[in-house]
Design a protein around this nucleic acid. Structure first.
Length: 187
DNA sequence: ATGTTGATTGGCT
DNA sequence: GCCAATCAACATT
């Protein structure tokens, strides 16, 4: 799913206006086979907590969490109900709603509006009020749309970012996906 | 109850 | 490249 989401469009409806961007970088968390020690769902001995219960729920919901005292992270839950699987959205290429994104990202150049997980959440005004939201409700304010498919040969993969002292093999497993050459990829 | 850390960012050297 | 910001979640006592 992390790979399949590349090239699709994330749409945020805010005050009746569409803010949207092409998904150009993602990361996968957790695996049905064995626990992923970098995944929030494996904390608390693999049992759900107040924060992670959304991860354990059915696919198609948003998992939005707060970190470093200031940043919101946007994830899409995947996999079967009961499994803590999700995809972190790490970067978008802005497509619709430029003026509002620029406003949310105060005086920063376009290139820095959405080239990171905290940045894209801020640009699209995604915070805890969207945690648990089901993306495919008719009245949803956040969803994914199909867009022009990207050619498979531009997809690159590598280790996930910011895992700290997560042990191997999880530290190096190549579950980060991005579109080669896209200027909005975070690094 | 207390201590540590973090799926990051932005400013400074 | 280094590090402070800033606080909720989680682990430990």
């Amino acid at each position: 799913m992390a790979q399949a989401l590349l090239g699709k469009r994330l749409v945020r409806l805010l005050d009746g206006q569409r803010l949207a961007g092409t998904i150009v970088e993602t990361e996968a968390y957790c695996d049905a086979a064995e626990p992923d020690l970098a995944c929030h769902g494996t904390r608390n001995r693999g049992r759900p907590t107040a924060r992670t219960q959304i991860m354990f729920g059915p696919a198609g919901h948003a998992y939005i969490y707060f970190t470093y005292g200031m940043h919101w992270m946007t994830n899409i839950i995947t996999g079967r109900d009961g499994q803590a699987n999700g995809v972190l959205l790490r970067a978008l290429e802005p497509v619709e709603g430029a003026a509002v994104m620029a406003q949310h990202r105060t005086d920063r150049p376009r290139r820095e509006w959405t080239n990171g997980p905290g940045k894209l959440s801020q640009a699209l005004a995604i915070d805890k009020t969207l945690n648990g939201a089901y993306l495919y409700r008719p009245d949803s304010v956040l969803w994914v749309e199909d867009a022009t498919p990207i050619p498979p040969d531009v997809i690159r993969r590598g280790p996930r970012i910011g895992l700290g002292q997560t042990p191997e093999p999880w530290f190096s497993i190549p579950w980060r996906y991005w579109i080669e050459g896209n200027t909005f990829v975070s690094r």
